[in-house]
Design a protein around this nucleic acid. Structure first.
Length: 427
RNA sequence: GGGGAGAUACUCAAGCGGCCAACGAGGGCAGACUGUAAAUCUGCUGGUGUACACCUUCGCAGGUUCGAAUCCUGCUCUCCCCA
């Protein structure tokens, strides 16, 4: 017998909308359900984590999760939440993305769990063989244009325009649900709140075409307490791919969450129980400066995404960069440790000839390395007392000399509290 | 087709011949305070040169002028009203 999946999502604040009867249907028996992922990029980002965790909970409740990568839907383009027509990706890029996304998803779900092992599917597999005529006769016949036009995603675009391709999207996605319902007995589709319209087209198609029952649950869009978008930093999206977002930056992203957001995140992005979470919150209220909440969130998610070893390095780097460590501590690190700890920190290399007898700090920040975009900016930051060399603030006329080089080869530059750069001197 | 309004830096938005690298607001960055939080306060926010200076920038292309974001001509685009 399954445990109560809906109740689990409910206390975690992960339910935005749900079709009547869903909870009962899922409690009756072990069921299959799915979530679709768009292969719009070659990596998932933290925004997708909500969907991934939903599927993880689904499996933990005893149900059978299907992760669908949209090799076919990706070719059409989902208009939901988009104010403009999307550019289509070419088939080759799409295929590459599908493979990448698939690989990342494999890390979260258990594909060897016996009868409720997770399954990965690609809707390209069933759309590939379908002809346009088959589609409009067998599928299109069941859904009226009136019905499709009533969808928010379509209504919003009626003024500015929308291609037939994107208009068809909800039908294409709706058919996915129908297909999985017929072939894999999927009775529920999960997804973000912007997917509600698409999902309901699916349940409608199932009802009209086969008379079957199907359900839907959507998760709320995550917003930060200050109203800004979740999952973005000044340098862009926070990706799951360590090549795009280093484990260190990933860890820092979560650690920097505000108190309100962290309390939210710990429920959504970790599997900790209600009791564990309340204990951590109590601890946090007791001693807020220890940031127990942020740490718990950051550690849990970083481990899940990048593994325990990567987490340790991220913590080590964070302690050195944000702790009380001094220039002396930095000097004490072996070269190997230094570079493994600072793997995710921006780096630049110059030759010892360029370094010469001494390098002006402005040059080290801008012209020679590109850490800052211009000499003017470097000077401004220096004037604002924002620049440090090996953790010690320096003035505008500072000259880097061999004394500043750790192990004779590298130096740690800092701007403000949170930006670090490593300059290596070689040759 | 006719008539009108407008295009200014990341965004909104002033400026309408020299005092304009361009008011102000938002955003961003930094500093102070803190807890790598929130709130608040302060500074900075085109480039090169440490200041004076110079270079590039006010839809695009020309022109008038000692001098233009500001005036003129043409072009492109956007919005509104009437058919």
């Amino acid at each position: 017998m399954p445990t109560n999946f809906i109740e689990e999502l409910r206390w975690r604040g992960m339910i935005h909308d749900m079709m009547p009867g869903t909870e009962e249907a899922l409690m009756k028996q072990v069921s299959s359900g799915y979530i679709g992922f768009d292969p719009t990029a070659d990596s998932l980002h933290v925004g997708h984590l909500v969907q991934i965790m939903t599927l993880v909970h689904f499996q933990r409740a005893g149900h059978k999760p299907y992760a669908l990568v949209g090799g076919a839907t990706g070719m059409v383009g989902d208009p939901s939440g988009k104010s403009q027509e999307r550019n289509l990706l070419d088939a080759e890029t799409l295929q590459h993305n599908v493979a990448c996304v698939r690989k990342q998803l494999e890390a979260f779900l258990d594909f060897n769990a016996g009868s409720n092992a997770a399954v990965m599917v690609n809707n390209y597999d069933w759309f590939e063989k379908m002809s346009f005529l088959d589609f409009i006769r067998d599928i299109g016949k069941h859904i009226s244009v009136n019905y499709m036009m009533a969808k928010d995603s379509v209504k919003k675009r009626l003024e500015t325009g929308m291609s037939f391709t994107e208009f068809s999207y909800q039908l294409v996605q709706g058919y996915d649900f129908y297909y999985l319902n017929q072939h894999h007995n999927c009775i529920i589709q999960l997804g973000g709140s912007d997917q509600w319209g698409n999902i309901v087209t699916g349940t409608e198609l199932i009802r009209r075409k086969s008379g079957g029952e199907a359900y839907a649950v959507t998760t709320p869009l995550i917003k930060k307490a200050d109203g800004t978008k979740f999952g973005k930093t000044e340098s862009g999206s926070v990706w799951l791919d360590p090549e795009k977002t280093s484990p260190y930056a990933f860890y820092q992203f979560w650690l920097n969450a505000s108190d309100t957001d962290a309390a939210n995140y710990i429920r959504i992005f970790t599997l900790k129980t209600k009791e564990e979470i309340e204990a951590i919150e109590a601890e946090h209220t007791e001693a807020p400066h220890l940031r127990a909440l942020q740490k718990a969130v950051a550690e849990d998610i970083t481990t899940r995404v990048h593994g325990a070893a990567a987490l340790q390095t991220a913590i080590a780097a964070s302690n050195i960069l944000f702790g009380k460590s001094t220039a002396a501590d930095l000097q004490a690190l072996s070269e190997k440790d230094f570079f493994s700890v600072f793997e995710g920190v921006d780096q630049a290399t110059i030759t010892s000839a360029e370094f010469g007898a001494g390098l002006h700090i402005v040059e080290a920040l801008a012209a020679k390395t590109g850490f800052l975009s211009s000499n003017g900016e470097a000077r401004r930051e220096l004037k604002a007392n924002a620049i440090s060399v090996n953790k010690e603030k320096v003035a505008e006329d500072y000259i880097l000399t061999t004394k500043d080089l750790i192990n004779g080869r590298y130096v740690l530059l800092g701007k403000g509290k949170k930006n670090n750069y490593i300059l290596r001197v070689e040759g």
